[in-house]
Design a binder for these strands. Structure first.
Length: 848
RNA sequence: GCCGAAGUGGCGGAAUGGCAGACGCGCUAGACUCAAAAUCUGGUAUCCGUAAGGGUGUGUGGGUUCGAGUCCCACCUUCGGCACCA
């Protein structure tokens, strides 16, 4: 006797069978325009997953959540007659692979290839309908050749403020083209992480620590490659409006870009011809400026500091320099600073105000200098209180509030020509005054910094750049791909010098020229991968233009801005990948390389799946669920359906083993609708199946299910779609004889969710072809209408009785029937009926 | 501190302003069985009541409405993001 629990249906046998079938027949291969057999009359649907980083740990249950959602949609759209593009690939450059390689001594290419094989195998065992002929890998020279090529497009372009778009550098008529390129070299204060041996982008630093590994990060000036994303700040904000993205993600991007309107004001320095420019969002408070603060790193500090203050200023500067970012932010509760001894002249009233330095003014934002208006700015108020600087009211709050530290809007006071004006009017008037008198102008500032694009790593795309006589220049496209050198020792050098600098042969380009030794960050490959899927084998271009226009939807008749039709992934990329990719896409759009301004039309974030204990899954908690185990126990179809049945896609939700078993039972019930088990334990076609028409009630369930499942798939409400199919199955479980056509319809509706079992039953029941190639069923609205309706009778809004009326009953008839219903009579006895509300088809409410 | 999202049975969750708790899990009773598993059928918010029935219920307090889980105002809690951005 076997101790192993008997399988509720033979999923293990049928799942591998159909996975092989789809593979061998390339069932889900999508043809490109121009290829034989391509049907141009069909609309296109491009549904994209965020491709995984193939880590050594393998797939976890979080990956397939989004992947199953897109798989259901792509199979559904295919059945609805669309040409569907649904690809998968590998984002395989990156730190973990390199660190693992350093630890084990294996080349990252070797471990990466192994991990990719593991991931691919796992994804295939879940039965995803990917077009595997379009698989890409960012570490493949045939791929990163084009990543390098696109980098060169950025290098060879500049942002023309007159046209508000990128143009070829050839159209730039200024002195120094290198100062305007979209990819440029600059000596900037960067986030240096000593433990990782590399610099990091602002987006990769969380609370002063590296996002990868949580190591301390310090600021230091270094010469680095930068991408001029700030040129696109406005467009990156404005063009969010047309996108079908979660509002929360749009907001995260807007806040990250951090646009603020204000004015620049120029202050003279007493007894010197230096000027200090400050940025303020409140030019209306200029009369209230009682001191000026420069960032400790401000270039003018040394020039204006008076001799008697030099020592204190230098000490303060040194102190700030040695502070880590963490110390500067975490311990920032207390304001610090020192006076320079210099005085600035307020242009609006000629008043002399002291100039201080303090680290609450940041060097990277605005002009690195502020005018302090302690009466109406919290930070200035704290600083002024601590150092006993004067506080002068210039805004009258609209209510009884105290004006001290009031930062809202009100009425200007003590402000000369602004007195009596509202804050917004005063802002406008002051900006005009500044401009007319040459003391400043309206400006816009952004929190967004240019993108630090170089890393001191081995496992990344080398820059297609060479250096000669201290100048950089681009490789030609024909010299690509530039592959990394074969190296035995690719560890960081322990200095800011990248590991590639150790590859002396590779480094040497010619007698007088050497190669750039930095590599690109992991984000480079993912900035454009969705384009390569459209045309993965193209050797001439990164994407063919006809193919691009078709799959990205430039020619589609819908009024949408185009792009990928549905993109599903986690929120962790809100200000990283999703911002970077939009930026690259816009550059390519400006340069005429792609035809749509935005890459991703509709974005959906799947929620995190927690462990069974309601905690975040982690190895240390021991609550990690491995998809392979679930599939071995219950099958891929149950795994897919359970992930979709858990709850709304976008919501965070805990895993439940009992829940998987419940869904597995549902699939077993579907199986038994079609199959009987004989004495020998073999499954044969169910004897209850018959070529009969469903009865009226059954017909209604069939059509209601067709309607609901179709609508729910479009809105990604998979949990309720499955619930409705459960209702369907519950309806037919007890039915004998059982109408064959009903089972046929159920299989079609269930196919996108549970592709293996439905394909197998389709074959077992002898239906034509394979189910994946069938057309999605349509429903008959007439079948949903019943002759008799059940109406609710309410007294004062409370349910008191129910009533069955003919669907053609008039309002008057319904009202009369309701008033005559036994319980209504009871409840209204001896009372005056004030009002009767009849909602046709729904209820009657009697107000007494 | 600022911004955002969410609070519904024992649990996951469902509900165009119109019967709160669909569907599933769990629990429970019954059928089948020598017995168990599996399967099938029924029950399952809570309080009062033998029952019929009634009261109370969607984080808290107000409001709009014939009618509020749903809309408005205030607050509480949890989660996520930003964090001296002038």
């Amino acid at each position: 006797m076997s101790t192993e629990r008997r399988k509720p249906y033979p999923f293990d046998r049928i799942e591998s069978k159909w996975q092989q079938f789809w593979d061998q027949n390339a069932t889900f291969h999508a043809l490109n325009p121009g290829e034989p057999g391509f049907d141009a009359s069909r609309p296109k649907y491009y549904v994209l997953d965020m491709f995984p980083y193939p880590s050594g740990a393998g797939l976890h249950v979080g990956h397939p959540e989004g992947y199953t959602a897109t798989d259901i949609l792509s199979r559904f759209k295919r059945m609805c007659g669309f040409n569907v593009l649904h690809p998968m690939g590998w984002d395989a450059f990156g730190l973990p692979a390199e660190q693992y390689a350093i630890k084990t001594g294996q080349h990252p290419a070797v471990t990466t290839a192994r991990n990719v094989d593991m991931f691919r195998g796992q994804l295939k065992r879940i039965g995803f309908a990917y077009d595997w002929q379009r698989e890409i890998n960012t570490t493949d020279p045939k791929y990163f050749r084009w990543t390098q090529s696109i980098f060169l497009k950025l290098y060879n372009s500049w942002f023309n403020p007159a046209t508000n778009r990128a143009e070829s550098i050839a159209s730039y008529t200024g002195e120094d083209p290198d100062s305007v390129r979209l990819a440029y070299v600059a000596e900037v204060p960067v986030n240096w992480c000593n433990a990782l041996g590399t610099v990091l982008a602002n987006e990769e630093v969380i609370d002063g620590k590296s996002e990868v590994g949580g190591h301390p990060v310090e600021r230091r000036p270094m010469r680095q490659w930068m991408l001029r994303i700030t040129a696109y700040a406005d467009r990156l904000i404005n063009e969010l409006d047309g996108l079908d993205w979660p509002e929360s993600i749009k907001l995260l991007q807007r806040n990250w870009i951090g646009r603020s309107e204000g004015a620049e004001v120029t202050f003279g320095i007493q007894g010197s011809n230096h000027n200090v420019r400050v940025f303020t969002t409140r030019p209306d408070t200029l009369f209230g400026a009682t001191y000026l603060v420069l960032a400790p790193e401000h270039a003018l500090v040394d020039e204006i500091t008076t001799p008697e203050n030099k020592a204190a200023v230098a000490a303060y500067q040194e102190n700030c320099r040695s502070k880590s970012d963490l110390e500067r932010t975490e311990l920032a509760k207390d304001k610090t600073g020192v006076p320079t001894g210099a005085f600035a002249i307020n242009p609006v009233n000629g008043q002399q105000i002291p100039v201080w330095i303090a680290d609450y003014v940041l060097t990277g934002y605005g002009t690195g200098a502020i005018m302090a208006v302690p009466a109406h700015d919290t930070r200035d108020f704290e600083f002024a209180t601590k150092f006993q600087l004067p506080v002068l009211q210039v805004v009258q709050p609209p209510t009884e509030e105290t004006w001290q530290g009031f930062t809202g809007e009100g009425t200007a006071v003590n402000s000369g020509f602004l007195d009596g004006l509202s804050t917004s009017d005063a802002k406008r008037k002051m900006a005009e005054w500044l401009e007319t008198n040459g003391h400043g102008k309206k400006t816009i500032q952004y929190k967004l910094r240019d993108w630090l694009f170089s890393r001191q790593r081995y496992w990344g795309e080398p820059f297609p750049i060479i250096w000669e006589n201290g100048k950089h220049r681009a490789l030609t496209d024909s010299e690509l791909p530039l592959t990394p050198p074969e190296m035995d020792d690719f560890r960081p050098t322990g200095t800011p010098e990248p590991p590639l600098s150790k590859a002396k042969d590779w480094l040497r380009y010619s007698e007088t020229a050497t190669r750039e030794t930095n590599t690109m960050p992991q984000w480079a490959g993912s900035c454009w991968y969705y384009l390569r899927y459209c045309d993965p084998l193209n050797n001439e271009r990164f994407i063919g233009s006809d193919v691009e226009r078709y799959w990205m939807g430039a020619d589609s008749p819908t009024p949408k801005p185009g792009g990928v039709d549905l993109y599903v992934g986690g929120t962790e990329h809100a200000v990283l990948h999703l911002l970077y990719a939009r930026f690259w896409h816009k550059v390519l759009f400006d340069l005429g390389q792609v035809s749509t301004p935005e890459p991703f039309q509709r974005l959906v974030n799947q929620g995190i799946i927690l462990g069974e204990d309601g905690q975040k899954m982690s190895k240390s908690r021991g609550n990690v669920v491995n998809p392979d185990d679930v599939i071995a126990a219950c099958g891929a179809d149950a795994f897919r359906c359970y992930e979709m049945f858990m709850g709304p896609l976008e919501q965070m939700k805990p895993w439940s083993t009992a829940g998987v078993e419940g869904v597995s039972r549902f699939l077993a019930r579907v199986w038994r609708l079609a199959m009987d088990e004989n004495q020998a334990g073999e499954w044969t076609r169910s004897a209850a199946l018959a070529d009969i028409a469903p009865d009226k009630a059954q017909t209604k369930v069939i059509h209601a299910t067709i309607k609901k499942v179709g609508e729910d798939i479009e809105t990604l409400s998979f949990n309720t779609a499955i619930a409705q199919m459960m209702v369907f199955v519950n309806t037919f479980t007890g039915a004998s004889p059982r109408p064959l056509c009903a089972i046929r319809t159920l299989l079609q509706l269930l196919n996108p969710f549970a592709p293996h079992i439905t394909e197998e039953l389709w074959e077992q029941l002898g239906f034509e072809g394979i189910i994946a190639d069938q057309t999605w069923p349509t429903y008959d609205p007439a079948a949903l209408i019943e002759d008799e309706l059940e109406l609710v009778v309410q007294i004062n809004g409370k349910l008191r009785d129910k009533l069955t009326v003919n669907r053609n009953a008039t309002t008057a008839e319904i009202e009369a029937a309701a008033l005559a219903s036994p319980r209504a009579v009871e409840w209204t006895a001896g009372k005056t009926i004030r009002k009767v509300i009849v909602v046709p088809g729904k209820l009657v409410n009697i107000v007494v």
